[in-house]
Design a protein around this nucleic acid. Structure first.
Lengths: 323, 323
DNA sequence: TTTGGTTCGGAAATGGTTTTCCCGGCGGTG
DNA sequence: CACCGCCGGGAAAACCATTTCCGAACCAAA
């Protein structure tokens, strides 16, 4: 049984007792002689000892890590959200473990169902779907602290932090109208996500007879280029576009430019996420500012004090793509 | 202390012993009376019981999860790598937990040092730096199974799976020369990563007097646009560019186009990663094909059979950006 | 009645932390 | 000088929740 080295091996080599070794390593529960502490630390080095995560967590009932479950890490919006959480938690000495559900409620259910194999103190989840994610998240929330981030799922009582999507749509529509645009096309993904639902609903409520909605299969750059083809095949009076994701806007922008269309002269393009894409596209994309930092702050605060839902106000960032 | 519900609560409610409840739930180690099994399962539902990850892992000495440590999840290349791992492991019923080190050796050291707070069976790591990552990874490898992916760190004995960068550079250079280009600029990031080192070394070995290297601070799209500014300020004879990342190539491409330059007529642009970016840019980027799937397969196989280093052969994917 | 197989429960094991109890030494006080 | 309290350390055991080993009981077949 000498295979794995445990704390008692360290204590033995350092010539101290197990409690003392523990006191040196983990807590400052009580003062220990600096000389003994040094011996313990040296013994650790020499033996290559590392504390057993499972044993420690079992006793302590706490790991210093959170899980973040996102639908698609390849989406720049979620990638930036992950980065923001990771940086923020790193400052606190905590770890973020990220899990990708591939925009698939089935995979999400598997991963959430197996979350009891991963050691975390709480789970931050961006639900893949509004309807189909509810059951798995509710189940998870029975035994874990759960916060819904960016999206919600139907019937889940876990608190949520999200953007005021209706206000965001209103900001973009009013901006485009103020610039004299008459016919707006909203390009959305037909994913069953709460944010998509809220955005299209808000848009339809504000839309006039000349405004349209185009549903693409997902939030990828390729969907943007496909949307451009569909638009060019059936241009109508459209002179302005609202994309519900920066990735889609990027594909749309480059495809329109490649087809010889001028942006913003012929088409004003706006978008939602405020990722680096909106900043580096040429021309820059008018978009709602990034809410990643605020979402991170709000959701972590919510985990601490257990307050209620948080709805963030969007801000408009005007760049060249809207004239 | 009745706060958290454990297996003994389930057993009590179901009127069976703890071992029997365990047999019903986790393993099919032995047959149990179907009637008892049903009682156990009902008790679980009613109590909302979920197995304790720490206790299970402590006893079993295994979780079905791997950790993947990447330098920057916001980089499309790593995001696609994460997705590929996640999909592949999902098929096997395993989980992937991803950790972002923000291209910072300090953060990497903290995160790797605290890896004993996360429950995983093995760690796949993309070292942030060639020189400065070695110590932390070596230390980690003393107590964990570790595989280096995509990059290596100096002096680490853990096996690695990586691209044959020299062959990749040769493919691109020969392709550009075959298209009649005379003066190639390599745009790299001055990060201390093994892949960057190998690529610039291979390029310098092949380079003629008209070829140059430009070192940008990092692998972001913004670095690409900055590189374009530097290039336009000092154009020399450059008629071809090799970027060591798709993100950089994207920024460079759009910035050059925005400045009125024609691609590929005036500048042929090629790149390395083969992410979705190379496919959706306009024109498409000539690049080395994505090796994500092969890296995933090779590294997982390596974990299974403990074989040696794997070096993947690159493939050239020709698109419009190189003429 | 014995034998063999099946199923269940008590107890050990997993590894680290924490508590309890004790001890020896040290300094201050009466 | 005796006494008291405090402080740092050690031995042993409890604890965390689960799995597994092993013995016991039971039922059916021989």
């Amino acid at each position: 049984m000498g295979s794995r080295i445990g704390l008692k091996d360290v204590a033995l080599r350092a010539g101290v007792s197990v409690p003392t070794a523990s006191r040196v390593l983990s807590g400052v529960q009580r003062n220990v002689d600096p000389e003994l502490a040094l011996r313990v630390r040296n013994a650790c080095d020499e033996l290559g000892y590392r504390v057993n995560a499972a044993a420690r967590a079992l006793r302590i009932q706490s790991t210093d890590s959170l899980a973040l479950v996102v639908p698609a890490i390849a989406n720049a919006y979620f990638a930036e959200l992950v980065s923001a959480y990771s940086r923020r938690l790193d400052l606190q000495g905590k770890r973020l473990v990220t899990i990708d559900t591939g925009e698939s409620p089935e995979s999400e259910e598997r991963q959430l169902g197996a979350m009891d194999r991963v050691l975390v103190d709480a789970v931050l989840v961006v639900p893949a779907a509004f309807e189909r994610s509810g059951a798995a998240i509710t189940e998870l929330a029975r035994s874990n602290r759960v916060v819904q981030v960016d999206r919600r799922a139907r019937g889940v009582e876990a608190p949520s932090v999200r953007l005021d999507n209706a206000a965001g749509v209103r900001l973009l529509v009013e901006h485009l109208r103020a610039r004299g645009r008459r016919s707006i096309l909203m390009v959305d993904a037909q994913e069953d996500s709460s944010s998509s639902i809220e955005r299209t609903a808000a848009f339809r409520a504000l839309a006039g007879p000349d405004d349209r909605v185009l549903e693409m299969p997902n939030f990828t750059v390729a969907s943007g280029t496909d949307a451009a083809k569909l638009l060019l095949a059936n241009p109508g009076d459209t002179d302005a576009i609202i994309c519900t994701a920066d990735t889609v806007a990027l594909g749309l922008l480059t495809a329109l430019q490649h087809a010889g269309k001028r942006v913003p002269a012929e088409y004003a393009i706006t978008s939602f996420d405020g990722t680096y894409i909106s900043d580096t596209a040429a021309p820059g994309l008018t978009t709602l500012g990034s809410t990643a930092e605020r979402m991170v702050e709000a959701s972590l605060a919510l985990l601490d004090d257990g307050s209620d839902d948080v709805v963030l106000k969007p801000e408009l960032v005007v760049r060249g793509s809207s004239g």
